[in-house]
């Protein structure tokens, strides 16, 4: 968890990726510097220059206006492919949560994480964590997408659940990327616009 998870792309010039460490990020292209200090986000247009208060909502809006995660994932020939290294784990079981003998709900138990790679293109998500933990699924067959602060979960067909804990990439970038690719796949298939991604993907009609 770090500021670069939120601000993975430069909100000023659109350069992707930003550089960062902890509660600070900086752009190697235009030189802006953003840091969290006294509970606020402060932006300097050049290092050591005057600092301005900025809101995280503004940062995110400007990142989206630059194209969000799509630009970096798009190749020169117009095709789209993006991948990242991750610790990949699969749901192995569900456990009941009881209190005073009364069932309150269920919790998923994830198996041991394995190092691997997750790759997306315009139509599919490919997971490779070695051996039987490899596969490829159409965006249209995914059941849900949900991100936590440090990981991304995808619901797969046949009641499978896979979780990615990215080693050097932003879960917010991946959440946004997956949502855009799924929305695009649904629209191309004529299934309507996606209005909700969890607990299941729902279209407007």
């Amino acid at each position: 968890m770090a500021l670069i998870d939120l601000c993975y792309r430069c909100p000023q010039c659109g350069h992707d990726p930003m550089d960062g460490e902890g509660d600070a990020v900086w752009c190697a292209s235009c030189g802006i510097w953003i840091e969290r200090s006294r509970g606020r986000l402060l932006l300097s247009l050049t290092e050591g220059d005057q600092q301005f208060d900025v809101s995280a909502a503004d940062l995110c809006r400007r990142i989206d206006e630059h194209g969000g995660p799509i630009t970096r994932a798009t190749r020169d020939d117009g095709t789209l492919e993006y991948s990242a290294r991750a610790r990949i784990s699969w749901r192995v079981s569900e456990q009941a949560v009881r209190y005073r003998g009364v069932l309150r709900g269920f919790v998923e138990s994830m198996g041991p994480p394995a190092p691997g790679t997750v790759t997306v293109d315009r139509d599919r998500v490919h997971v490779d964590a070695g051996g039987r933990h490899a596969g490829s699924w159409r965006h249209l067959d995914l059941g849900a997408v949900q991100a936590s602060s440090s990981s991304l979960q995808l619901s797969l067909p046949d009641d499978q659940l896979v979780q990615f804990r990215f080693e050097d990439d932003s879960p917010r970038r991946w959440e946004t990327l997956m949502r855009r690719l799924i929305t695009d796949a649904y629209e191309r298939a004529g299934r309507g616009g996606v209005v909700e991604f969890q607990p299941r993907i729902v279209t407007g009609w």
């Binding site: 709900g105 269920f106 919790v107 998923e108 849900a144 949900q146 009641d159 607990p199």
Partner: peptide, 8 residues
């Protein structure tokens, strides 16, 4: 507890 990857 609410599971987020499916309707619960």
């Amino acid at each position: 507890p609410a599971r987020r990857y499916r309707v619960d």
